[in-house]
Write a protein that binds this DNA or RNA. Structure first.
Lengths: 253, 253
DNA sequence: ACTCATAAAGTTGTCCGACAACCTGACCAC
DNA sequence: GTGGTCAGGTTGTCGGACAACTTTATGAGT
């Protein structure tokens, strides 16, 4: 019997349990926005834990935007609890259908970002992208890891959109998919030509952006993401279960 | 002199300061991923605070995915610190250029979500949207607040995409823009016909989705978001500073 | 010299008690 | 009624203590 090195589930910390209990109460509306939570002393008694545990749970609730506390007054549920942060996985790290959903979101944002970049890129942006592609191919020629150069390239594209928020979001999505790039940039992927193929796609993307051709940039970027999804064995129903609409087909070309 | 009820800045809690100090160290790479943080006792001495303060700062760092701790071993920086969550505002709540960036991101995602909904909607989804529009117009007729119905409608659209992640992200973005909808649904907006205009836009959107016309659904949704931005006095450079590309114009129609 | 069990030291998790800083509401004097 | 004062409750911070656990060092046995 072979075991995947799964981090074995440790017994929960008390503060984790309490955090989940309170988070559930708030999400369920059992404690409404603006309402005051029970005092720390009361919660400590209610859950039979020490006040230190309560304070740690509260600290986490505060960090995630569920509650705010005022010294002397108490702790209150925020107007829109939990709306301050966005996580990919609500709780479980790796649900089955989740990964394809992430790729679909990435498909949307990276495609539009490429289109925006084509419309707004400045000369410096193009120079950056090209220099990163050069670095990438140099690394590939030496058989080194080109992951860093790949990262830098995508950052340069995001930078060219002129929208820092879009750039940060793309980076956020990409960070959760680092495993997905392994088959491309690993030694194996390099030997099988996947790395060079990816580098070619990058060149086509920067060409479209340089030409100011938003539609082509979007198509190339989407194809790039789709290819990455395919390498993981994911089938994205991009066109949906129904037949593709003819009006929409124009830009998917 | 009239004062806006601005929540006056209170002096920072000690744990907040310590949190920022550690977060900065980690972001700057001063403590590398995988590395072990100083022990709680050491940090307490170093910053001249009690261990309770240190533990609260650590609790927040853990909640936001910067560090993980193992009892008996110590606390370690995660492989990709801070990559677990996404926030709109890195620190300051309301930077000037930020709002338009949020709207642009919303433009992208809501537009594509509408297109996806047009391709994948099921009969039940359409029924939901229409019933929420009915609720909305009924509320408008009675002069009541239609904000809830508006929320429900947008949720139904997101639901029709078949991608729960996209739905959650749209909701996340929308939650940060609740103020932006006030001028639409307020009594004033109602009197000036903005509320009914928005309702009309909703009808056009559901028509496009029902027809399976992805391009039209996207265009209507984007126009809807643009209108909301205009009401806030934002000018989104959608087509970029340069002239719009002809290839891209096809789908913007 | 090597292996393996054991002990020791260090670290995080939890508990307790105490006081300071602060807010709220009731009470009281005017 | 107005304004000030005070008492009680609540969060923020401190200090010490012990339990649960991990890592490292130690030493016995082979």
């Amino acid at each position: 019997m072979l075991n995947v090195p799964t981090a074995l589930a440790r017994p929960d910390r008390l503060s984790d349990s309490l955090y989940r209990a309170l988070e559930t109460r708030i999400r369920a509306g059992s404690i409404q926005p603006g309402e005051k939570l029970p005092s720390e002393k009361q919660l400590a008694f209610e859950f039979a834990v020490s006040r230190a545990v309560v304070r740690e749970a509260m600290s986490r609730l505060k960090a995630e935007g569920y509650v705010e506390s005022r010294q002397g007054a108490g702790a209150f549920v925020t107007p829109r609890p939990g709306a301050a942060i966005f996580r990919l996985s609500r709780s479980g790290p790796r649900a089955p259908g989740t990964l394809s959903e992430v790729f679909e979101l990435r498909l949307i944002v990276e495609g539009e970002a490429a289109a925006l970049a084509a419309l707004r890129r400045r000369a410096g942006d193009l120079a950056d992208m090209r220099s990163h592609i050069d670095n990438m191919e140099r690394a590939l020629g030496l058989g080194e890891d080109a992951t860093m150069a790949d990262d830098a390239f995508h950052r340069a594209v995001a930078q060219a959109t002129g929208n820092a928020l879009v750039g940060r979001f793309i980076e956020f999505l990409g960070g959760h998919l680092s495993e997905s790039r392994a088959p491309t940039w690993s030694a194996e992927g390099h030997a099988q030509g996947r790395a060079h193929a990816a580098a070619d796609e990058h060149r086509r993307l920067v060409d479209a952006i340089a030409a100011g051709d938003a539609a082509r940039a979007r198509a190339v970027a989407r194809a790039h993401v789709l290819r990455a999804a395919e390498r993981l064995g994911l089938s994205l129903p991009v066109t949906g279960p129904t037949q593709q609409n003819t009006n929409d087909a124009i830009e998917e070309t």
